[in-house]
Every structure is written in structure tokens, then in C-alpha cells.
């Protein structure tokens, strides 16, 4: 799967969590723009983990602030598998 495909999948997975229908770009932030609280983050991360069959540990999550960083991280996790 290339980065564009990973991006497509994550865009689909984020939809139910994007309650305010924020237009998502690589620079969109989860805490600021999307206003995700800790519970939403847990459910959203679980959805990605289950779809891609990867682990995104809390340590890795702490490094991810924007949508683009998330796509990069998931893309890399898949490549490393």
C-alpha cells in the first residue's frame, strides 16, 4: 500500500470521529482543529490499529500532532511489518 492509499483509508476511518466536518489536510491537528479528547483518541487509534493490523503505542501517539504525521507513521508501520 502506498502513502496515498494509506491516506485514503485513514480519511475513511476518521469520518465518524470528525463530528464538526472539519476539512482535513496534512496540517490538521487532532487536539486543536479536531478537538479530539482522550476517549475519542482511544477509539480512533483502535479503529486504525484494527484496520491496518498494527500497534500505535502511546509513546508513538505522543509524537503525532497532525493528520499528516499520522499518515506517515501508519505508512511506516506497515512498511516495517
Amino acid at each position: 500500500m502506498d502513502r496515498a492509499e494509506t491516506d485514503q483509508t485513514i480519511r475513511r476511518l476518521i469520518e465518524p470521529f470528525n463530528k464538526k466536518r472539519v476539512a482535513i489536510t496534512d496540517a490538521t491537528t487532532f487536539a486543536g482543529d479536531l478537538e479530539f479528547d482522550s476517549l475519542t483518541v482511544m477509539d480512533f487509534v483502535a479503529a486504525i490499529e484494527d484496520d491496518f493490523d498494527v500497534i500505535i503505542s502511546m509513546n508513538q501517539q505522543a509524537e503525532i500532532e497532525t493528520y499528516g504525521q499520522l499518515v506517515d507513521a501508519v505508512h511506516k508501520l506497515q512498511a516495517d511489518r
Binding site: M42, A46, E49, D50, D53, V54, I55, S57, M58, N59
Partner: peptide, 27 residues
Amino acid sequence: GCAMGKAEVVPFKHNDLEAMEKRLRRI
């Protein structure tokens, strides 16, 4: 304790056996 030890921390949904197993399987 998790933060102080610097291990990779992987939480699962409260009391959810299936969620726990999935995470263990992916390690």
C-alpha cells in the same frame, strides 16, 4: 510506572478481552 520505565505502552478498552488479545497478538 509505565512512563517512568519507558516501555512501549499499549492500552486497550476497559475490560475488553478481545481488544486486549488483538494488541498482544500484534506485539
